[in-house]
Design a protein around this nucleic acid. Sequence first.
DNA 1: GTAGGGTTAG
Length: 712
Amino acid sequence: MLIACLRKCPLEMGICVILYFVVLGSMTCTRTVVAIFVEMLELGFLPHLNSVSHAIRACGKLGSMEKGMLVHDSVIQNGFNLHLPIANSLISMYIRMGRLDYGRWVFDDMHDRDLVSWNSLITGYARSGNWAEAFNLFLSMKKSGSWVPNRVTFLGLLLACGQARNLVLGKSIHGLLICTGLLSDLRLGTATVDMYAKCDRVECARTIFEEDLSEKSLVSWNSLVAGYSQNGYQREAVMLFEQMNVESNLKPDSITFANVIPAYASLANSGSIRSIHTLIIKKGLDINGDVVLGTAMVDAYGKCSDIKAAKSLFTCIEKPNTATMNAMIAGYNLNHHADKGMLLFCEMLQMKVFPDAITMVMLFQSCGELGSIKQGNMAHGYCLSKGFSSHLTVANAMIDMYMRCGCVNSSGLLFSLMSLKNIVTWNTMLFGYVKIGFSAMAMKMFYQMQSEIQYKPDSVTMISIIQASASVSASQGVELVHGFIVKLGLDSETLVVNSLVDAYAKNGLIQSARVLFTQMGQLRDQSSWNVMIAGCGMNGQGMEACKLLTLMEEDGYRPNSITFTSLLSSCSHSGLIEEGCRYLDIMVKKYKILPGLEHLTCIVDMFARAGRLEEAYQLIKSLCQTSDGSPLSNCDAVWGTLLSACRMNMNMELGQLAGEKLSELAPDNCGYHTLLSNLYASGERWDEATKTRRVFEDGMLLKKPGLSVVEM
DNA sequence: GTAGGGTTAG
């Protein structure tokens, strides 16, 4: 309608209409600006310089390459390309459309350039991740000698430095900003904070954030939160986020959340992730529409073992992308639903969401978790066909998959064929060998690794080697590896030392374990205490274990579920029944920890060892049910322990009760049926023994393929 | 006319 009217109007009218819509500025108006301009061209009007400029910007905003090129054609036909601002507009139009190649073409074709031309292209390259070209252009600009970089140039360069993690150049720009006094500029100051954060120099970023930024924007806070979060400083990220909410009057946006959520996820439990979720909704942010935010939340739920919440959020995300899929598959793998992870991968292909190298890593994890070599081989084939197998992390995941599936030779072959390896490659092989009991092989690899100077053993390597050494030459092995650890300077790593304490204790060298534990001092964490308590237990020093709990509390550590498992097991091994019961009571009443299967099994085992089966039975009856009287899930293992104890003590009556309970709870489990049958047999109650055996032989078990009778 | 910040693995 409007265009029909225009046909009858003079040129000036067209320009006025264009200006009117430019001022209005909405997307529909932008479309109208382009439509009117194209119509004017078709009607043969010679466009005015001003309207050409507006039309170019409108095309960039619209992202229409077709219209953009049409306008570009008219520019050339009318010789407007010689006009510097018009050529510059064309460059930014193409950059906005993601066509840097066209932008560069316009740039190369220009007779005259100004600082804007250079800046547009430098920033364009930096934003698209081609930082090398951004630096090259900057050098050419300096070489031409006509231009002095301004704040826009520096913004582009800082962006490129961050992406390239080029700290040397980043620092020199920082220096230039100090000399020119530009650091006080909010945007430049923030960009400097961001550059240091991206180059893993969070402490420099923090100093500038606090000392040089007199005013802080939301982007300033977000950059620093991201810096902490992405460089492994989770606590600092969370603390800064909370500080921001208290100190500044800025409101966190979706980017703030996307940055801080991974930090919360690696620190917190699912409860606090749920509260973050509520907070996001309260702030009115669109978690389903913003795929980056949604993905971060799916991942966080997965990491905190709340797979239900992860799935229900995942299904609500409107346009899930590759990262979203990867996060969901990771969640499934982590929570023992690798089968679902694999299914999701297939769905992903159907939905035409294309897998990337990370997806491949996740897929191999699923195959490894399931021990499914058939699927693993298929995934390997897919990887080869899509060219992912040259990725180092993908190849590492593949080695791990073959190891987990028991195909040691395939892993070995892959390893020997890899021209590019890293420490993770070696660690994967080492850990794989240790897990399947090939300790000698692991030790051999460790020595081989040390002969190749480019691979320096790290704490992960040493934790595998500690385990391997213990089984290779028992006590001597641990001491030998301890020596290596000291030599490598890894004796200040808590995880490594905990592992050493554990290995000493497991090999009966409780005195060495104790000395090391005492030497740890500040290095001790909660796990150190747990390991030492368990170590005392397995060396028959139950009373020592109990004393350690008191010391642990005095040291300011709160015992957790694992602590009590170790302690109860210690009491059980040392026949300390009264102490065991007391600690169970302390665990429930003082520390509000609900007894899990592992605790109950220890307690039953403790009574059973002392032949006090009746008490064990009463205890299970009272503890193996939830508050509404229904049985606790998976509590068959506890009844199994009792049944086993009954057999040892020839207690027919209780054994029968336990057996009945088990046929209710785990009718499919061959082991329990055999155990009961053997109990009857040892009491010479042959009829019942035969009957029990027949129940499960005639029953569903034999109909299940793959199940075989396990003799106990 | 050019302008800073985000998700997934190891």
